[in-house]
Amino acid sequence: MSTVEESIDVEVPVRVVYDQWATFEDFPQFMEGVEEVRQLDEHHAHWRTKIAGLAREFDTEIVERVPEERVAWRTTGESVKHTGTVDFEPLGTTRTRVTMTMAFQPTGFAEKAADKLGVLDRQVRGDLRRFKRFVEGRDAGTDPQSASESG
C-alpha cells in the first residue's frame, strides 16, 4: 500500500475550513478527476471519478469525524482500496493547517506505474492547492468557480 501526506496552510478560520471540507458534494469543484460525490447518509458517500482516463465508482465510509479537527474515511467494497484522513490544525484565529494523508492500494499495471511515478502525490498536492483557493475565495465572498481551475 502506498501512502502520501501533504499539508497546506489556508488563510481561513478552522471552523470554516472544516465545514467546507465536510461538504463532500463540493469536492468536484477542487478535486481533479472527481466528477461527483453524493452523500448517501451521515457516514457514507458514493464517488464517481475519472483519473487518467480510468473511470471508477466506489463508496466510502466516514470512520471518524471530529468537528474542526479530523475527518477519516475508508472505501467499502472491493473495486477501490484506500483510506485517508484530513486533519485541521488552527494556526491562530484566522489561519488553518490542512494535512491530508492517504493510503492507496494500486491494482493493475496502469495504477502501479502511476504510483511509481508519484501521480498520487502530485494529485493530492494539487487538490490541496485548489482547495486553498476554493475555501479562501468562499470565505472572502468571491466567486468560488475561479478557485476550481487547475493549478
Results as ranks from 00 to 15, higher is better:
residue 38 R to I: 09
residue 16 V to M: 09
residue 36 E to N: 14
residue 20 Q to K: 13
residue 41 D to K: 08
residue 36 E to V: 07
residue 14 V to R: 12
residue 10 V to D: 08
residue 21 W to A: 14
residue 28 P to C: 02
residue 24 F to V: 02
residue 33 G to A: 01
residue 10 V to W: 02
residue 27 F to A: 04
residue 37 V to M: 05
residue 16 V to R: 11
residue 30 F to V: 04
residue 10 V to L: 07
residue 38 R to T: 13
residue 7 S to N: 11
residue 24 F to T: 01
residue 18 Y to N: 04
residue 40 L to D: 11
residue 32 E to Y: 04
residue 26 D to V: 05
residue 41 D to T: 10
residue 28 P to N: 02
residue 13 P to M: 04
residue 11 E to K: 14
residue 40 L to C: 08
residue 9 D to W: 10
residue 17 V to S: 13
residue 42 E to A: 15
residue 11 E to T: 10
residue 19 D to N: 13
residue 25 E to C: 00
residue 34 V to T: 14
residue 13 P to A: 04
residue 27 F to V: 02
residue 24 F to S: 03
residue 14 V to Y: 07
residue 8 I to D: 01
residue 5 E to L: 12
residue 10 V to Y: 02
residue 36 E to S: 14
residue 28 P to T: 01
residue 14 V to T: 12
residue 17 V to L: 06
residue 11 E to V: 06
residue 36 E to I: 06
residue 34 V to E: 02
residue 28 P to V: 02
residue 15 R to D: 11
residue 10 V to H: 04
residue 36 E to A: 15
residue 11 E to M: 10
residue 10 V to F: 03
residue 30 F to D: 03
residue 9 D to Y: 10
residue 19 D to H: 09
residue 26 D to Y: 00
residue 7 S to L: 08
residue 21 W to L: 12
residue 21 W to Q: 05
residue 32 E to P: 00
residue 35 E to L: 13
residue 7 S to G: 11
residue 5 E to A: 15
residue 17 V to E: 05
residue 7 S to D: 09
residue 22 A to K: 13
residue 7 S to Y: 06
residue 29 Q to K: 14
residue 12 V to K: 03
residue 22 A to S: 13
residue 8 I to H: 01
residue 25 E to S: 06
residue 22 A to E: 12
residue 38 R to W: 00
residue 16 V to F: 08
residue 40 L to F: 09
residue 36 E to M: 10
residue 36 E to L: 12
residue 31 M to V: 07
residue 23 T to R: 15
residue 17 V to R: 04
residue 20 Q to N: 14
residue 42 E to S: 14
residue 42 E to I: 06
residue 9 D to T: 15
residue 24 F to M: 05
residue 9 D to H: 11
residue 27 F to K: 00
residue 13 P to N: 02
residue 35 E to C: 01
residue 28 P to R: 03
residue 24 F to Q: 01
residue 32 E to D: 10
residue 19 D to K: 12
residue 24 F to W: 06
residue 14 V to K: 08
residue 30 F to K: 02
residue 42 E to T: 13
residue 21 W to R: 01
residue 22 A to L: 10
residue 5 E to P: 11
residue 28 P to G: 04
residue 11 E to F: 09
residue 21 W to P: 03
residue 10 V to Q: 05
residue 16 V to K: 10
residue 38 R to A: 08
residue 24 F to Y: 08
residue 9 D to P: 12
residue 12 V to Y: 08
residue 13 P to T: 02
residue 23 T to I: 09
residue 7 S to Q: 10
residue 14 V to S: 10
residue 19 D to A: 14
residue 6 E to I: 08
residue 20 Q to S: 14
residue 9 D to G: 12
residue 13 P to L: 03
residue 11 E to N: 14
